[in-house]
């Protein structure tokens, strides 16, 4: 199976120069290890089955050894700083993520927010796409054509979101709900989550409206609660081991609608932003652990 990511952590190679230290028990655990452990700790106190616990152990080990998401952060950084597009400008010099031109650090946990230049509340990916179109001159339709990672392809905006998200690691979610624009979109998002329709009469809340439920073995976070919303937004953007793909929350919302038996929501649309505003603001105050690893 190709999901196996750590292919050769233990390389039994004979080093010509120096013998390898086979066993080590350092007294103090390395900082990275501690951080990874902390990360894996569930934000919600709920009953966890053995499979979930095993996966969390695995995830902690993966993050410690090197989360592939970091590769996309590095690519995103390069894309952010390079002059590109028909207008030959960089996002670094033209794209305001809400905390001023040139500032990336801390912006991810403060989105969705209202952007006066666009007259819209936008989540991180939507804002980046907006900048790519308005500043760099890319065509919106082109960016929306293949917006999510597929078999052999990762869209540029995915790497860019991962880079921006990485610079909010260990910071607290702080969606500016005091802004009436944001509050309005939050309330609309709440209604989207409530909306039952389609052949199976499902809404987001059919599965994600109460605590402690499961579909098969999958725990379902209650996105209306702080703990549940935190579980839902943590780890995104995430490297999905099913298919080795880097995926964003824009993709995740679409996949929820698919399972809800709904039609397809527009990429970077008001509907997706409203849901993300509702969920992320409900997680306000929780610490973002950075781009993650998903099953």
């Amino acid at each position: 199976m190709r999901q196996t990511l750590i292919a050769a952590t233990a390389i039994a190679l004979a080093f010509a120069m120096q013998p390898v230290v086979a066993q080590d028990k350092p007294a103090a655990k390395p900082a990275a290890k501690m951080a990874a452990k902390k990360m894996a700790k569930p934000a919600v106190v709920e009953e966890k089955d053995a499979a979930t616990l095993e996966f969390e152990k695995f995830r902690a080990k993966m993050i410690e050894d090197g989360n592939p998401a970091e590769l996309f952060e590095a690519q995103g950084e390069e894309l952010w700083k390079t002059k590109r597009g028909p207008n030959n400008v960089s996002l670094a010099e033209t794209c305001d993520l809400g905390l001023g031109l040139g500032v990336v650090k801390g912006t991810y946990v403060q989105m969705p927010r209202y952007f006066a230049d666009a007259g819209k509340v936008m989540d991180a990916e939507r804002r980046i796409v907006w900048c790519m179109v308005e500043k760099q001159g890319f065509k919106a339709a082109d960016l929306a054509k293949k917006p999510f990672a597929a078999e052999t392809y990762t869209p540029e905006q995915t790497s860019l979101v991962t880079y921006v998200a990485g610079l909010s690691r260990d910071m607290k979610f702080a969606v500016p709900l005091k802004d009436p624009h944001v509050k309005e979109v939050y309330e609309i998002g709440k209604e989207v989550a409530n909306h039952r329709a389609g052949p199976y009469d499902f809404s987001c809340n059919t599965c994600h409206g109460v605590d402690g439920k499961r579909i098969r073995m999958q725990q379902l976070p209650n996105i209306s609660s702080k703990a549940g919303a935190t579980t839902a937004v943590l780890g995104w953007p995430g490297y999905r081991m099913t298919g080795n793909r880097m995926l964003t929350l824009q993709w995740r919302m679409g996949d929820c609608f698919r399972q809800q038996r709904f039609p397809q929501p527009g990429y970077a649309s008001d509907t997706v932003t409203s849901l993300l505003t509702f969920m992320t603001a409900n997680a306000n105050g929780s610490t973002y652990t950075g781009p993650g690893i998903k099953r």
Partner: peptide, 28 residues
Amino acid sequence: SHRAKAMTMMKADFTTKGQATADRIYED
């Protein structure tokens, strides 16, 4: 009013994909 806005927004944003036709957004 938020509900009405959500409805208008969703009607504009959802499109048919495969067998999931855009009109599934409408309530019975």
